[in-house]
Structure formats: C-alpha cells, structure tokens
C-alpha cells in the first residue's frame, strides 16, 4: 500500500512539473515539484541512490526549465548530498522543521545554480529561483507530508 501510494505520488509530481513546463512555461521556475522527489529520495534511499537521483532528476529539471543541461544537475546533486547528511539530525515530526529544511536546501541549490549560470553564461540572478521557487516548493512539500496519515504512508516520521 505504501509503495503504491509513493509511486503514484512521484508520478503525479513528475506529471505536474511536465504540465507546468508545457502549458504554463512562465511558471516553470516558480515551483519545482521534481525537487520534492529529490528531497524525498535523498532522505529515504541512502547516499549513492540519493546522489544519483539528484543528478538524474537535476537533468530532468534542466530539461523542463529550458536552460543549460548540467547546471541544475550539479546543484541538485550538491543539495542531495547536503540533505542526506543533515537529515539524520532533523525531527520530521514537526512540520516547521520540514518547511525550513526544504526551503533552505532548495535555496542553497538554486544559489549554486545561479552562480553557475552567472559564471558560465553571464545570466543575471533570478528572483524567481532565489525567492519564489524555494518558498512555494517548501510550502507545497510541507502541505503534502503535513498530515500524520501522509507521514505514515511516506514513512516520514
């Protein structure tokens, strides 16, 4: 039951990001459902799988964001490493901790991506990436796993 629920949720998150990229391209940098998957896999699946998930899902983010292949992959890999290492000290029973951890890790990841964009391609810093995306994604992520029922189904405790 848990596995089925997790699978459906991951597919829905992927589909959501795909739909935003396809039908609302102006919002594609405002929220990142794929990061929620990266975050979940980084805390659930151990070091190697978490890092690989960060890299591969980062490539998918690169594709959906219409940017340069490799930038988000790099930053999500780093974020995955950070989340995997720090998660053992976080009490996920408190939603405020989930929110702050999600927000902080995504902000850090987007900051790395922005620095890479600036250094390699001369792109300007993006308010969407540094402000709105971490805020919205962290809010949505906290709402998703906020209830006890959801935490139990996702094995988040």
């Amino acid at each position: 039951m848990h596995r089925k629920f997790r699978f459906i949720l991951l597919v829905l998150l992927l589909a959501g990001q795909f739909m935003i990229g396809r039908y609302q391209p102006s919002l594609r940098l405002s929220v990142d459902f794929i990061y929620l998957i990266v975050f979940y896999l980084a805390i659930r699946c151990g070091f190697y799988k978490g890092i690989l998930a960060g890299m591969l899902l980062g490539l998918l983010t690169d594709h959906f964001s219409g940017g340069v292949i490799g930038v988000f992959s790099f930053s999500r890999t780093l974020a995955s490493y950070l989340v995997g290492n720090v998660s053992r000290f976080i009490d996920f029973r408190k939603n405020s901790f989930i929110f702050v951890f999600l927000w902080g890790s995504l902000w850090f990841s987007n900051l790395v991506a922005n620095i890479l964009f600036e250094l390699a391609f001369g792109f300007n810093f993006s308010v969407q990436l540094l402000l709105w995306q971490p805020l919205l994604t962290a809010t949505l992520g906290t709402l998703l796993v906020g209830s006890r029922r959801a935490k139990a189904l996702l094995d988040v405790y």
Partner: peptide
C-alpha cells in the same frame, strides 16, 4: 562518488 558525479555535470556544462 560525489566528486565523480559533480565532475560529470561540469563536463556537461562545459560542453
């Protein structure tokens, strides 16, 4: 492992 994965990403970017 982390350095290898990041290096692959940097190669992708540099291309």
């Amino acid at each position: 492992f982390l350095v290898i994965v990041l290096f692959i990403d940097l190669i992708l970017i540099s291309s």
